[in-house]
Nucleic acid binder design. Sequence first.
DNA 1: TGTCAATTGTCAGTGCCTGCCATAATCTCG
DNA 2: CGAGATTATGGCAGGCACTGACAATTGACA
Lengths: 221, 221
Amino acid sequence: MQAIDGVAEREALPGLRERKKQRTRNTLTRCALELFARQGYDGTTVDEIAEAADVSQRTFFRYFANKEEVALALQEVEEAVALAALQARPPEEPPLAAMCNAAMATWDAMGPAIEAVVPLELHLHTQRMIESTPQLLAARLRRLGHFEDRLAAEIARREGVDLATDPRPRVLVAACSGVLRAASRVWGERADGDLDDLLRLVTDYLGLLGPALTGSWRNRT
Amino acid sequence: MQAIDGVAEREALPGLRERKKQRTRNTLTRCALELFARQGYDGTTVDEIAEAADVSQRTFFRYFANKEEVALALQEVEEAVALAALQARPPEEPPLAAMCNAAMATWDAMGPAIEAVVPLELHLHTQRMIESTPQLLAARLRRLGHFEDRLAAEIARREGVDLATDPRPRVLVAACSGVLRAASRVWGERADGDLDDLLRLVTDYLGLLGPALTGSWRNRT
DNA sequence: TGTCAATTGTCAGTGCCTGCCATAATCTCG
DNA sequence: CGAGATTATGGCAGGCACTGACAATTGACA
């Protein structure tokens, strides 16, 4: 699970058993997302997913703690990519700039990582489904909270401050992720959402973070 | 549901039927929170809550869409108090200052509103339970998202900008609420949390919003 | 090949939640 | 006050998510 600097770590074959498990997990994920896309989240039972993946219902629950989790499975991938993007920023970059640039870099690197499991279009459809399904949105926001912790820890490491006593990493990450969520929600409400649109929205919103916090807006229009 | 300027609206008795419903709802809430406090959220069944409130299980689900909702029932009260606090801020106050001051004012006004339903201590215990129960935390975060929309709308109204085209209200609210959540989480992790401690944390964190966003932290320590 | 550990399937059971219909309580109006 | 309309409630059947226990199967490893 640890992200390692080198590149020659990918194909360290972990035994037949482990590969089979990974394959089952991916199959389960793909079948679930396809069924969700076709007949909705609530309209799909765990039994159907299990049958489509040719395993028992009990096995499904050995791979995913609950039905929500399979819908959010790919979010884990996204988080890994985003965290790696932040770690790849040069150390001398100021914290806010590093966060912004990492956000930009994430969109490019994400595609291939997702395609390894499901078609990108299916994943985009899933994202919209999550946003419009209360139960899934709730679970997603909770996971996001944990992810923010990891981001804050990385910021603290970069800047050499102590996360336990210095609240600035948490404050920064909280502000940024709040803005990112606002941007993605506005984007989600547009029916004609393009990926470039999202990138533009995020850029604009992050740029507004400073100005929006200072003084009255009426004197500046 | 509309907030009305006048004050003589409180005691407009809404008929026996309506009062009885409100009483049943409060009873259900109180019984549920007490049971949760005594034997945990997962350790309490809906049947137990219904029995304690002397209604059928079916009736419980007519008042609350699901088990989560009764645990979060008082959050609705808090949101109403907070929104009122924001609306009470003088119009000439800049947006960020209005948000901060409203947050401060909320803590004072909240107590009595809560006490009308359950003892304040029980409510505080419930807050900690929500924070430590994944399912409840998730639901709470989702509700918070809706609440942020209402706050952003109020900010937009105050400043006379259009929420649909000007993202600054959302950006401001997102940043503030992110910081508030970070503060309350840090507070929640301290076992010896005092209410004054929370107030102090929120003040500090909001004050850091500006500085944490600018440049590198290493040159200023 | 044989033994051990991990993975899976089957089954039974609990709890959350919903639709349906009958009953009882409240409201309305003559 | 009383009959009819409206609304809240209770009971029941059933679907679905999820879990524990045990047996059967499969890959790992000597």
